[in-house]
């Protein structure tokens, strides 16, 4: 029965290829694949043609066994299409529909070629449904993998972007922290900070946590570790930018930061300048009323 169905399907796809493609393209267009403007009609046409040709070759060589070598070319093509759609920003439904919408034209074609033989028609339909489901699932898997790749890369980029070490003056560094601190990020932050201390021969590092939304015991512990490591290298740390709510939370949680802490980056910078033997003063002329 199954063999009959596969044979019927193979025969139908070979005989009705042009008809199936036309119906499939019409369906895809009706489904709105082109409306978003992310893909051109010619491109969609080429994709449909390639997929159908490779499906026909695969069926002829290996029946409905999607994992067979004969289907390697089709799997690659679908992977390519679905990956490019993931990057172009198609929804998962759009991407899955690309394969699943092939069902209707294929079923119709089987009906046309084997309409007189109900057993072969049912077998063919079953085989087609089975095959296209497998291919659709493959497409989804690749689509998800593509999305995850994008998300992973973005996460890495954010981590790199959000941990800059800025040189404020000779021997004074600032580390503006933005976003939540977790173990992985603290590791990156700590390494960046310590390397910058070596490179700049810094005496004082200001850790500004204005952009850190919450400070719990874990975050405080991470901060203290970074500060302890910097101290071991011979640099002092000043923490700045603790917001009032965060200060309250920290005290209620019993978190103790045994370091010098200033409310703003400016105050911390002034202290750092003072400790390194410098002062900032206003020029006399700016104070005099005659100056315009």
């Amino acid at each position: 029965m199954a063999v009959d169905g596969t044979a019927a399907l193979t025969q139908t796809v070979a005989a009705e290829e042009a008809g199936i493609r036309a119906a499939w393209l019409a369906l895809l267009k009706a489904g709105g694949s082109l409306q978003t403007g992310r893909i051109r009609e010619a491109e969609l046409d080429t994709q449909a043609r390639t997929v159908l040709e490779q499906l026909r070759d695969g069926l002829a060589a290996a029946g409905t066994d999607v994992r067979a070598d004969a289907y390697a070319a089709l799997r690659d093509t679908l992977s390519e299409i679905s990956r490019s759609r993931a990057i172009q920003g198609f929804t998962p439904t759009d991407t899955a529909n690309f394969v699943f919408s092939l069902k209707e034209p294929v079923f119709a074609a089987i009906d046309r070629t084997h309409g007189g033989d109900p057993a072969a028609a049912t077998g063919g339909t079953w085989a087609a449904s089975h095959l296209l489901d497998a291919l659709g699932l493959h497409t989804m898997e690749v689509f998800l993998a593509g999305r995850e790749e994008v998300i992973g890369r973005q996460g890495q980029e954010i981590a790199e972007l959000s941990t800059p070490v800025v040189r404020l003056w000779d021997g004074i560094l600032a580390l503006p922290l933005i976003g939540t601190l977790d173990s992985a990020r603290t590791g990156v932050v700590m390494e960046n900070l310590l390397q910058a201390i070596v490179d700049e021969e810094a005496e004082i590092a200001i850790i500004d946590i204005t952009g850190v939304p919450t400070v719990d015991t874990l975050v405080a512990q991470h901060l203290l570790k970074a500060i302890a490591a910097a101290r071991l290298m011979g640099a002092d740390c000043i923490v700045s930018g603790i917001r009032p709510q965060i200060a309250q939370t920290m005290v209620h949680l019993g978190v103790e930061l045994n370091v010098v802490s200033k409310s703003t980056l400016a105050d911390a910078f002034a202290l750092a300048l003072k400790r390194t033997g410098r002062i900032v003063t206003r020029r006399q002329s700016a104070l005099s009323p005659t100056a315009s």
Partner: peptide, 24 residues
């Protein structure tokens, strides 16, 4: 002290609070 050494000591829980440190 090298950065990697400093990180290791902190991770080991040895913050050497009794020692003064200098960059060079």
């Amino acid at each position: 002290m090298r950065p990697a050494v400093a990180i290791t000591l902190v991770e080991l829980g040895l913050e050497l609070t009794g020692i003064r440190t200098a960059l060079n």
